[in-house]
């Protein structure tokens, strides 16, 4: 992903943890010229309604994304590996807690 030059600073992606113990979830993005500004802008933009207990900000150009054309080779091979899921296994009748 590339950053387009902008007088309002670079784009930073914002991840918010809504409660301790939960994973950080992508909330959106902010413009900022430095990391402190990115953090503060993220705070003011995305946690005004008590949404957060922790924030991550990541420069957009630091994120590596798979491309749509990769999706066949990346993700389809997982389609036929049903043995990775617990429902693939047949348990004897009457067996409990397994």
């Amino acid at each position: 992903m590339s950053n387009i030059k902008d007088s309002q600073g670079d784009v930073w992606e914002v991840f918010v943890q809504s409660k301790p113990g939960l994973p950080h979830k992508h909330a959106g993005s902010v413009h900022a010229t430095d990391k402190e500004m990115a953090l503060q802008n993220a705070r003011d933009m995305y946690t005004r309604r008590n949404e957060g207990t922790c924030l991550w900000v990541v420069p957009l150009n630091a994120i590596v994304s798979s491309m749509p054309e990769d999706s066949g080779s990346f993700f389809d091979p997982a389609d036929d590996k049903a043995y990775r899921h617990p429902t693939h296994y047949i348990m004897p009748e009457g067996a409990k807690h397994i």
Binding site: G9, H31, M37, D44
Partner: peptide, 11 residues
């Protein structure tokens, strides 16, 4: 001066 700063100042 910046949209995000507008929001910060309102806060």
């Amino acid at each position: 001066p910046i949209l995000e700063e507008d929001i910060a100042m309102t806060n």
